Simulated assay, not measured.
Amino acid sequence: MPLTDMIGLAFEPAATAIRDAKIPGAVLGIVTADGARAAHWAGAAQIEPERHDLSRETWFDLASLTKIIFTTTRILQLVEQGRIALDDPLVSVIPDLRQYDMNAAERRLTFRQCLAHQTHLPAVEPLYTYGQDPQTLRAFILQRVWQSGPPVYSDINYMLLGIAIERITGKPLLDQPLPERFSFRPNPSLCAATERCTWRGRVIRGDVHDENAFALGGASGHAGLFGTIDGVLDFAQSLLDGTGLPAESLRAIRTRESEKRTVGWEGFYAGWHGGDACSPTTIGHTGFTGTGLWLDFDRGFAWSLLTNRVHPSRHTDSGILPLRRATGERVIALFDAEARS
């Protein structure tokens, strides 16, 4: 079965979600290690205050896919260049981290621990409620006495990594080099809309949905990246074919640091968003706005489902978890059937 026919069948769960007004629109892309790819899309990039149709060229707020596509990859590139090591403490490049308490736990955090979410830091903090001056907020992140707790998936980990990237490279995140089809400053007219934000008083289109990333200037280590389906598939293919990262870094993103986490990524476990049919070597990640990417190394392909499920509000039941799982199960079943034929 041609990949273009296969993806139409795999898109059926998303088509149902669009028809039932669970989500405004979606695009599904599949790419193989040898470069074959296909995409299928339907629905609206925006429904409020006016409708705009979605296309293959629509730019999505990738939300936490920023963590893997930009931040994790950039840190691993800096490791490859010999500028840092994964087990170096953050203070090796951010010496002012908790500078008023030399015994603070944050001063012992390593790049590896932050990448794999193996720290004591909380999941999230409404930093934007403290103000919108990016430099002051960065200082707040560095000097905050963070409440200690068990390891959780934490945006704070990646805010610190974003600051580290700025310190090492001498460039703000907004000015960091990005591959084609990715941007921290997209053309709003090309973007899928996200939420009707009560804080900003408007429908968000072309600005980062995440309030903390917006207050930090539009980009942070945890959110802010925009991209198209083909940009995401380019990135996925580069990891499948080994051109995107050197062998040691590829091993790092595929090796467990905890039950569910690798360096940067989530590893397969029963009940996860990618579906239970994934091979044990599958890694993936999701984004709050309704985005996701999964790489099945055993089968040699990847798929990405990009939606704007938070438009016009996050406070609805979009059914994103069952949609992601159903899509992953459908994609894998079709690939396995094709392999047997």
Rank of each mutant, 00 (worst) to 15 (best):
H40V: 05
A15N: 09
A36G: 15
A36M: 13
A36C: 13
A38L: 11
D34T: 14
R19G: 03
A38H: 10
L9C: 12
L9S: 14
I18F: 00
A10W: 03
P24D: 01
A33T: 08
M6V: 10
T16W: 04
W41Q: 14
P49I: 07
E48V: 14
I18R: 00
R19S: 07
A14T: 08
A26R: 03
A36W: 12
I23P: 01
R37E: 11
L54T: 07
A39P: 01
A15I: 04
T16L: 15
T16A: 13
A33V: 04
P2N: 11
I23W: 01
G29T: 03
A26C: 06
A44G: 07
D34C: 09
V27T: 09
I30G: 08
Q46S: 09
A33M: 01
L3S: 00
H40C: 13
F11T: 09
A39V: 14
L54I: 04
V27R: 04
M6L: 15
P49Y: 10
T58V: 02
F11M: 10
I7R: 07
H52L: 09
A39R: 07
L54E: 03
A39S: 11
I30P: 08
A10K: 06
A21P: 04
R56N: 11
E12K: 06
T16R: 13
A21Q: 15
A42C: 02
K22V: 00
V27L: 02
D53E: 15
A45W: 01
P24L: 00
V31N: 04
G29L: 03
P24V: 01
K22M: 09
F11Y: 11
K22W: 01
I47P: 11
K22S: 06
H52Q: 14
E48T: 14
A42V: 00
A21S: 14
E57T: 13
W59K: 04
R19C: 02
K22D: 05
G43E: 11
R51E: 15
